[in-house]
């Protein structure tokens, strides 16, 4: 009993340490976002803002491009996620249920797609997007983001589809349904957790993406939130209070989305990543 409770208190101690380390930057971000400028630049730093202020948030929401960037991020992430989902569902179904010539070659091509260092393809991708007139457009970024999300999404869904008994589909096929119909009406509804995992994964990945957006988005019509945040720290009006407020604004939606979906998401991801 004592040994057990001792080991339990060790566990609690370690968990407390873990939470402290994981959460501290968020705490500090939140505290800083409510500080006035003078207080941010004070030694020693204060733990609780002396005169808490919303002005940093007002600055970010009313006087910067952040609301527009928020919209851009939303459109681009949603668009890219939707396309990735459709393509991944089709491809994974093909891989999970069929044998065909060139199958293993196709799979290895997708693996290569996942292994590819993005830094190595920014330059040609820039040239290609420029050639197609897609630089600085929503569509350009939406397509570029498929590179990042499609391969892992395919692997996540393959493992889900494989887990669904073929017998269920065969009955429907005997009744004369097409394969696409079977996929849409039988397999997909049963794979909902996998689909949710893909959606969350693709959305989070594109929402957070920085380097493609930095290279392919040139003005406020297409720049995304991460670029907005980077601009806050480089343009003339650098202001740590506003930077921290903008960080909070960027973190909250993604954290909520994630915490709401995390059970499904983690299940789907572990399935895909360990097989990919």
């Amino acid at each position: 009993m004592t040994a057990r409770s001792r080991s339990l208190s060790v566990v609690y101690l370690m968990v407390a340490l873990l939470i402290a380390v994981s959460m501290f930057p968020f705490l500090w971000m939140l505290v800083s976002s409510f500080k006035r400028l003078n207080e941010l630049y004070t030694v020693p730093p204060t733990w609780i803002p002396e005169t808490a202020t919303w002005s940093n948030y007002l600055n970010v929401l009313l006087e910067s491009n952040v609301p527009r960037y928020f919209l851009n991020s939303l459109v681009i992430s949603a668009g890219s996620t939707a396309i990735a989902l459709v393509l991944a569902i089709l491809a994974s179904y093909g891989f999970a249920r069929f044998r065909f010539r060139g199958k293993s070659l196709s799979i290895s091509l997708i693996i290569v797609g996942q292994l590819l260092p993005t830094a190595a393809i920014i330059v040609p991708l820039y040239v290609v997007l420029n050639y197609l007139g897609l630089l600085n457009t929503y569509l350009g970024l939406i397509l570029a983001y498929l590179i990042l999300t499609l391969p892992l999404s395919v692997f996540m869904l393959i493992s889900y589809f494989k887990g669904i008994p073929v017998e269920l589909e065969e009955a429907a096929i005997v009744d004369g349904a097409s394969r696409l119909g079977v996929l849409l009406r039988i397999t997909l509804p049963l794979s909902l957790p996998g689909v949710v995992a893909v959606v969350v994964y693709a959305f989070v990945t594109t929402w957070n993406e920085f380097i493609f957006a930095l290279c392919f988005a040139m003005d406020s019509s297409t720049k995304t939130l991460p670029i907005g945040l980077a601009e806050f720290t480089t343009e003339f009006h650098t202001d740590w209070g506003a930077v921290m407020a903008a960080s909070v604004i960027m973190t909250v939606p993604i954290a909520i989305l994630f915490l709401a979906m995390q059970r499904l998401f983690v299940g789907g991801l572990t399935a895909g990543a360990t097989k990919g």
């Binding site: 179904y93 093909g94 065909f100 010539r101 091509l109 498929l146 590179i147 499609l150």
Partner: peptide
């Protein structure tokens, strides 16, 4: 049939990668 399902994704990756 199998290749038809897989083709769109492969095409996109081929273009982009």
């Amino acid at each position: 049939q199998g290749i038809m399902f897989v083709l769109p994704a492969l095409f996109v990756l081929a273009m982009l990668v």
